[in-house]
């Protein structure tokens, strides 16, 4: 085996090992969530909350990915927009007292419970923006949908900047 070939193999194995271990860590994180306890406990509420935000994130991704594709699936966009709007309306109920950073691993900042009224107003902004967005998707016009993406993402960001922990 030539020198350059062995260097290539070593770097490739290192890269694969790095990827594999990161993925394993990722799965491990998920497994921990899945074991999270029974109905109504803080662990369960936090787990459900995490799943709900992930569902919203995935739905928003579906919208953006569809909009950038040449033949956008307007039905998928519409369904995803409704998913976001439905979840947005429940969002304010996902943060009962005792489910903050004191209860375990979460991206939710303690400030949520200190400024509950402001937090709820931010959640309400998402309800409004996602509601407007659902109306846009019903026009069936992909360019109108594209134009609304900034407003919807802005409602996510508005709250995240203040109440979501950036670092993992």
């Amino acid at each position: 085996m030539s020198f350059s070939k062995s260097i290539y193999r070593v770097s490739l194995s290192a890269a694969l090992l790095f990827t594999a271990s990161s993925l394993a860590q990722h799965d491990h994180d998920h497994a921990q969530h899945d074991h999270a306890s029974t109905q109504g406990t803080p662990g369960h509420i936090m787990h459900e909350r995490h799943e709900n935000f992930e569902t919203m994130g995935e739905a928003f991704k579906t919208i953006r990915d569809q909009v950038r594709s040449r033949d956008a699936d307007m039905q998928a966009i519409s369904r995803s927009a409704e998913t976001i709007n439905d979840l947005a309306q429940q969002l304010h109920t996902w943060f009962p007292a005792g489910t903050g950073p004191e209860a375990g691993k979460t991206h939710a900042k303690a400030e949520i419970w200190q400024n509950k009224a402001d937090f709820n107003a931010a959640a309400e902004r998402l309800v409004e923006e996602s509601g407007k967005f659902v109306a846009l998707t019903q026009t069936g016009d992909a360019s109108k949908v594209a134009g609304g993406i900034r407003g919807l993402g802005g409602a996510c960001k508005n709250c995240h900047d203040q109440y979501r922990v950036e670092e993992d």
Partner: peptide
């Protein structure tokens, strides 16, 4: 993949949400 969707990378549409989030954290 950005959590707000606005700052996602231009090739994020090629991968799943989970994979995109992994890429962002990594």
């Amino acid at each position: 993949e950005d959590v707000d969707g606005l700052a996602s990378g231009p090739l994020s549409y090629m991968v799943s949400y989970d994979a995109g989030r992994w890429a962002a954290e990594t």
